[in-house]
Design a protein around this nucleic acid. Structure first.
Lengths: 244, 244
DNA sequence: CGTGTACTTGAATTACATCAAATGATGTGG
DNA sequence: CCACATCATTTGATGTAATTCAAGTACACG
């Protein structure tokens, strides 16, 4: 669980602004398997202009904003991040969620401004890697290069699946699919949810409708509430509702 | 209905199966500006294992199917192609449209099976380029390499815009946005539509609802029918309905 | 010129949004 | 630690939007 470096006790605290919790040691990374630099030799990482810094964001904090010129990419070490775009009337639409091991802000590597506003739905730890360093390392490591292509591929897949599973069918089916989508932790029947407004922005529903449907699921015994925004799911029943 | 090959004047004809209409001369390409190989030197193209072949597909023909192992990518020279994924119950959801200059099947370059079934909504001309050739040319041309990264980027952008503009808001707003999305030809007020079933699969509606809304637009004078599936649009009125 | 297929249309039904009020959670200052 | 203010969530009643169902009509194709 713990990753400790230079600063010892700041790990558990969160503030308005992200907190730098020290430099990352990629060799010791808890999510090394799923992370970009997993395969780099120790030596490669010594040549960074800037060390890879870790940051901690509290719930509700943005990592970056849509339209910002992107100077870095961010690997999610822990937590959940929403990718938001805004309609002309100001309402948000969530076009994706990032979780452990995902990379935010790939477009920065192409010199493009960020495509989304990224906001943490819970306390989130990220590694920040400045674009220049990634671009240079890419030239050295064929494998990193390949990794990044795979990330683009993954981003397109995720977006397509977002459309087919969370924007297709009636509201109950979409909600059931969201529960199944989120119930992918170590405990397969456990699902952490987030605010009704965000659930609505994921599924294209109003918060009230989201609430109505969740209440219906509870009544039907399809889900059982363990704590605030924590549910135990009957995956089989959810699958039936989802149409799977 | 019949399938003819090697026939000389087949250029304008279309059949059940795609028709090879000969080798492409990229230097003479009508869409050279927007196409992948725009910047390659003449010499580079001589080294292809296989010549770049052009194919013609009739309306309704598939270019490739989801899950097929991808041996080639396809540049759209002319026409419109839908990207389809299927739900477990067999209903289709259209997750994107490709038009002149777009590339279909990028995932083939990563050795992945195709993510979508691609079906032509009208007569369509494509250039087929086998993956091995692209992969080799990528090593030679820095610029082609960059081009392909930009295509990935574009694919993600398109998918996100698909979610925010065509899967968000009420049905009338989504339909208005579809008209605006399609009215991007040389004549900015002209919009070619397609079957109500496909319109429904784009917007997440039933064909009847699509029909109802289009009828409403006609009644309100927002669009004016010129011919079958060809409309003249009042862009200002559509923008208002779309919420822009 | 008929036949099948897609499209249109309207009425009935269902699903979702809206609105308003009550309840519950969270944080603050006394 | 409690009282209160604030904000999110729940809930139910009501209105509107979308689907479904069932004809009827236009259109493409043999």
């Amino acid at each position: 669980m713990s990753l400790r470096l230079a600063c010892v006790n700041a790990m558990t605290q969160t503030f308005e602004r992200p907190v730098c919790t020290g430099q990352a040691d990629c060799r010791e990374c808890v999510v090394r398997d799923v992370v970009l630099f997993a395969d780099l030799e120790d030596g490669d990482l010594r040549h960074l202009y800037q060390p890879i810094e870790q940051f901690s964001y509290k719930r509700g904090s943005p990592i970056f904003h849509i339209g910002d010129s992107g100077g870095a990419i961010y690997t999610i070490r822990e937590g959940v991040v929403k990718l938001v775009q805004y309609l002309p009337d100001g309402t948000q639409r969530i076009v994706g969620l990032l979780r452990q091991g995902s990379v935010a802000g790939l477009e920065a590597l192409l010199g493009k401004p960020y495509e989304h506003t990224t906001i943490c739905l819970e306390k989130t730890l990220v590694c920040r890697i400045v674009t220049e360093d990634v671009q240079r390392l890419m030239l050295e490591s064929k494998h990193l290069h390949r990794q990044l292509l795979e990330r683009w591929y993954q981003a397109v897949r995720d977006a397509d699946q977002w459309i087919t599973s969370l924007s297709t069918g009636d509201a109950r089916a979409r909600m059931a699919r969201l529960f199944l989508y989120l119930a992918t932790g170590p405990d397969e029947d456990e699902c952490r949810l987030f605010s009704r407004e965000d659930v609505g922005a994921v599924l294209g529903l109003t918060p009230e409708t989201a609430s109505h449907i969740i209440a219906g699921f509870k009544r039907d015994g399809v889900i059982e509430q363990q704590a605030r925004n924590l549910y135990r799911c009957d995956r089989r029943a959810l699958s039936a509702i989802a149409g799977y």
